[in-house]
C-alpha cells in the first residue's frame, strides 16, 4: 500500500515539473519551533536543544516541493512558540500581506512551534487581508527524529497552497495530512502525531497522498473579510487569562487590574471571582467569559448580558485573548465587542 501511494504521489508531482521561472511562488516564513529544531540523536523525540535549521534546509530536504513551486524563504525569528507574541506577530502579518500582494505569489507557509501555533494562526486569520492561502505548519517531532513529520507537513502545505479550493478559506493549519481552520484548531496532545484537532467542528479537509481535498469552508469572518486593520498599530492592549477552579482566589484578577490590563478572559470562574469581576468592570476592564472545557460555546445568559460581560462563543481562552486584543483597538463598547465575538 505504501508503495502504491508513493507512486500516486510521484504521478501527481511529475506533470507539474516546469522551468523554475514559470512556477508560482510560495513564500516560506520561518519562526522556529520543533520543525526547525535538532536533537542529540534520532531517538530524541521530545528533547531538542541542539540548535535549529533554517528554511532553506527544509526546502532542500524536500526537492519535490520545488518542482511544484518556487519557494522563497524569509526568516522572521528562530524561537520556541512560547516566545512568540505580538512582537513577532505584527511584523509577520505585515510582511505576509505585502508578499501576498505580489501577483506571482500563490500563497504562503509559516513554520511555527506547536504550543502556541493556534494563537499566531488565529491572529493572522484575523489580520492578513488576503484571499490567497496561508498555511501554518509545525511538527510534533524534531527535524532530526526518526519518522519525523516535518518534511511531509511542508510538502502538504505547498500542495495545499497550490490547490484552488484553498483560496478564500482563511488561514489554514496543516499537520498530519489534516487541514484545519485557524478559527477552530487547537493542540490537544503533548507529543502525538495526531495532535491538532478542531473540537466538534472537525477539519476542513485533508492533504491526502493522491489529492488535496477540502470539504468545508468557515462561515465566520476572516482574512479578506476582516474589519481589523494593523495600520499604525505598534502594540496591542494587554489582555490576560484567569483560570477558574475549586477555591480559586480573586488575587489574579485584582493584580491584573492593578497592572493595567485592558481585558481579562475567564477560563471558567470561581465564587471568589464574582466581586473581583464586578470591580474590574467598574474600573473599565473588559471581561470575557470563556471556558476551560475545550469544546462548546459559552451560552449567553440573561445575567451575563445584564452585567456587560462578553461571552467567548466556542473560542478557547487563548484565542479569545487574541480576538479581544484586536477588538479593543476598535472599541470598548460591550455590545460591539459581543458582536465581534459573534462574527469572528
Amino acid at each position: 500500500m505504501l508503495r502504491i501511494q508513493a507512486g500516486a504521489l510521484a504521478a501527481l508531482l511529475l506533470p507539474a515539473a516546469a522551468p523554475a521561472q514559470e512556477l508560482p511562488v510560495v513564500k516560506l516564513f520561518t519562526t522556529g519551533g520543533t520543525i526547525q529544531s535538532l536533537g542529540k540523536d534520532r531517538l530524541k523525540l521530545a528533547e531538542y536543544r541542539e540548535g535549529r535549521i533554517d528554511g532553506e534546509t527544509i526546502v532542500e530536504a524536500v526537492p519535490e516541493a520545488s518542482r511544484l513551486a518556487r519557494i522563497e524563504v524569509q526568516a522572521i525569528s528562530a524561537v520556541s512558540s512560547v516566545r512568540m507574541g505580538a512582537e513577532q506577530g505584527l511584523p509577520l502579518a505585515r510582511q505576509l500581506a505585502e508578499e501576498l500582494a505580489r501577483p506571482e505569489v500563490a500563497g504562503a507557509i509559516v513554520t511555527h512551534g506547536t504550543t502556541t501555533l493556534e494563537e499566531t494562526a488565529y491572529f493572522l486569520h484575523l489580520t492578513v487581508r488576503t484571499t490567497k492561502p496561508v498555511v501554518v505548519i509545525g511538527s510534533m517531532r524534531p527535524w532530526t527524529a526518526v519518522s519525523r513529520d516535518g518534511p511531509l507537513n511542508f510538502l502538504g502545505a505547498v500542495r495545499t497552497v497550490l490547490t484552488p479550493d484553498a483560496a478564500g478559506k482563511g488561514v489554514l493549519v496543516l499537520l498530519n495530512d489534516t487541514i484545519h481552520s485557524a478559527r477552530f484548531v487547537t493542540k490537544r496532545h503533548t507529543y502525538h502525531i495526531e495532535t491538532f484537532v478542531s473540537p466538534d467542528v472537525g477539519p476542513l479537509g485533508f492533504a491526502d497522498a493522491d489529492r488535496v481535498v477540502l470539504y468545508r469552508s468557515p462561515v465566520t469572518r476572516h482574512t479578506g473579510d476582516t474589519e481589523f486593520d494593523l495600520d499604525g498599530i505598534e502594540e496591542l492592549p494587554q489582555v490576560d487569562i484567569v483560570y477558574g477552579y475549586q477555591e480559586a482566589s480573586r488575587a489574579p484578577i485584582d493584580a491584573l487590574v492593578k497592572e493595567g490590563a485592558k481585558g481579562i478572559i475567564l477560563a471558567d470562574s470561581a465564587p471568589a471571582h464574582g466581586n473581583a469581576v464586578l470591580e474590574a468592570l467598574a474600573a473599565g476592564v473588559v471581561v470575557v467569559r470563556g471556558s476551560r472545557k475545550g469544546a462548546g460555546r459559552v451560552v449567553l445568559s440573561d445575567r451575563t448580558a445584564a452585567r456587560s460581560e462578553i461571552t467567548a462563543d466556542n473560542l478557547h481562552p487563548q484565542k479569545a485573548r487574541i480576538l479581544l486584543r484586536l477588538a479593543l483597538t476598535r472599541t470598548t463598547d460591550a455590545r460591539e465587542l459581543q458582536r465581534i465575538f459573534n462574527e469572528y
Binding site: 466538534d200 468545508r216 469552508s217 468557515p218 460555546r297 449567553l300 445568559s301 466556542n314
Partner: peptide, 15 residues
C-alpha cells in the same frame, strides 16, 4: 449548533 441561546453556524459544506 442549536445551542440554548442561539443557532450558530461555523462552517458550510463545499461539495
Amino acid at each position: 449548533v442549536a445551542d440554548p441561546d442561539v443557532v450558530r453556524f461555523f462552517t458550510e459544506p463545499t461539495r
